[in-house]
């Protein structure tokens, strides 16, 4: 089971903010590209203007493996957002590279989710303009 949307209600649309351009360019090509410091090489998610470790402004974008594990999760049994049909789950995935991402799982029922479960990225085109990186069980 995946997240089901009530398409008649407006979706919370992500911001294609220019600090996140590399992330979105990657998604346009169905790649998960995250921010990496051009100087010290530290990964940083969510993207931000400066490396929090070495304060460099040399940002680059690099594709990640897309493999990781479920670090934590919640299940909405009552929807608080009219465009989402309950129940649905939100997961915090820890990637092999160490960064964490909020996302949804596809083809996994809420009662099958476990912390530590191995997952990998898939790309879900939720509407014409918007594709989101989501995760499936490996």
């Amino acid at each position: 089971m995946s997240v089901e949307y009530n398409k008649e209600n407006p979706m919370p649309v992500p911001t294609r903010y220019f600090d996140y351009e590399g992330y979105w360019k990657g998604i346009d090509e169905n790649k998960l590209t995250l921010q990496k410091c051009g100087d010290c090489g530290a990964w940083c998610h969510q993207p931000q203007p400066m490396c929090p470790d070495c304060h460099s402004i040399e940002r680059k974008w690099e594709e990640v493996s897309g493999k990781g594990t479920v670090y934590s999760w919640v299940t909405y049994h009552e929807s608080q957002e009219p465009s989402f049909k309950a129940p649905y789950s939100v997961v915090l995935v820890e990637l092999e590279e160490g960064m964490r991402l909020i996302s949804n799982l596809v083809d996994v029922k809420p009662d099958e989710i476990e912390i530590g479960m191995k997952v990998e990225v898939v790309f879900d085109k939720i509407m014409d303009e918007i594709t989101l990186p989501k995760f499936k069980k490996v």
Partner: peptide
């Protein structure tokens, strides 16, 4: 902030119970 709109809300993580439930 734009970061939360981009990286949380589209996945339905739109309320405090979900946000804190994760921790």
């Amino acid at each position: 902030p734009a970061a939360q709109e981009t990286f949380y809300n589209p996945y339905g993580l739109t309320s405090d119970d979900g946000r804190i439930g994760m921790n």
